[in-house]
Amino acid sequence: MLNVYLYAKRVAIAALIVLSVLTAFYLLGWHAYFFLLIFASILLAVLYCGMADWITDKLHLKRGLSLLLAVLLFFGVIFVAFWLIAPTVGQQVKEMRQTVPQAVSQVQHWLTQFGWGEKLMQQVPNDMSEVVPKQDALLSKVSGMFSSTLSFLADFAIVIISALFLAANPSLYTVGLSKLFPVRHRVHIREVLDKSYTTLKSWLVGMLSAMAIIGVSLAIGYNLIGLPLAFALALIGFFLAFIPNVGPLIAGVPAVLVGLTVSPQMALYAFLLYGGIQLVESYLITPLIFQKTVDLPPALLLFFQVLLGILQGGLGLLLAAPILAVLMVVVNELYVKGLLEASPVNAAEEEVE
């Protein structure tokens, strides 16, 4: 009789979990951007807390002072890096606006040498006036771009301020969230939240380390082969490395196009250099960095990136990896260990309590 009761209980819990997941996806589909902003705030708060914990451990300061130093250090590093490289990168970005279209024109000329390429080029309008919008449409696009910029700045400010509130007193929110569950489960919920925090912190450390290695390697490599706009291209590779699977593919295209403006041989060198660095990063550096931190299944990560990319575009693609890391912790702790692998004896004892 007890086994039948436990079986019915597990079925009910499993149905509740499935219903919760479906509800979450429904809410994500309609209000995805809001939830992604919340997660972005949590991710930044984890970074603040991780830096504050490190400062507290090394300097033995109070947490409030450590958090203040962590925030100042974070924005200070960004400001100093921007001050040092902005003039060079800014000039190279201006040059890239002219260089990349030239490279595209060369690719179009090369394609016309083939039958299928010529047919493809016939689909491109020769009269560029068809491509350039009329004055009314242009004003509308400029207005929309201005509105989008203001919206981005507002969202950015919300993320930064929310992250500061979360990092200032994280226990206030974790304890408050655990109170939404029955008393007997609250300790376990807080343990899951602690593991989620540790997972996100480890993922951030590993990802930032990999990004730094890729950015520095690309800057050195591009300069060694004499590729123009080396620092701007390396900066693109650095930022896009934050997006696993998809980001590295996108970052390699500008390097090859810029190489084409010099010669096909330079484009080949850029392609081989970038591909070699990505291979070393994917099969040597990243496994070593994430060996003791977070190991995300590549195929599952790619599917999840596609899902969030379809639901919310670039922001979903950007945050897909850390969200998946947290989901794996939650599913493993609450569903696999808490339900599927729970022994009948422990389940009965829990029910008695």
Results as ranks from 00 to 15, higher is better:
1 M>C: 11
12 A>G: 10
16 L>V: 07
18 V>P: 05
25 F>D: 06
28 L>R: 00
37 L>V: 10
39 F>A: 03
46 V>H: 06
48 Y>N: 02
48 Y>K: 02
56 T>M: 15
65 L>Y: 10
71 V>R: 01
76 G>N: 08
78 I>W: 13
78 I>T: 03
80 V>Y: 10
83 W>Y: 15
84 L>N: 04
91 Q>Y: 08
92 Q>K: 07
99 T>S: 15
107 V>S: 09
109 H>W: 01
116 W>V: 11
117 G>P: 09
118 E>D: 13
122 Q>S: 02
129 S>K: 10
130 E>P: 00
131 V>M: 13
132 V>D: 03
156 F>T: 00
164 L>T: 03
166 L>A: 08
167 A>L: 11
170 P>F: 09
174 T>D: 11
175 V>A: 08
179 K>Q: 12
182 P>G: 02
183 V>F: 09
190 R>Y: 08
196 S>V: 02
201 K>C: 10
208 L>A: 13
209 S>V: 06
212 A>H: 12
212 A>D: 14
215 G>C: 12
222 Y>M: 01
226 G>M: 06
230 A>N: 12
230 A>L: 10
234 A>G: 06
237 G>Q: 06
238 F>G: 10
241 A>W: 05
246 V>I: 15
247 G>I: 04
249 L>T: 08
256 V>H: 02
263 S>C: 03
282 S>W: 01
282 S>P: 03
282 S>M: 03
288 L>E: 01
289 I>R: 00
295 D>R: 05
297 P>A: 15
304 F>M: 01
304 F>V: 00
311 L>Q: 04
312 Q>I: 07
315 L>H: 02
316 G>V: 03
318 L>E: 00
320 A>T: 00
330 V>S: 12
330 V>M: 15
332 N>A: 09
332 N>D: 11
339 L>N: 02
339 L>H: 02
340 L>K: 12
346 N>C: 04
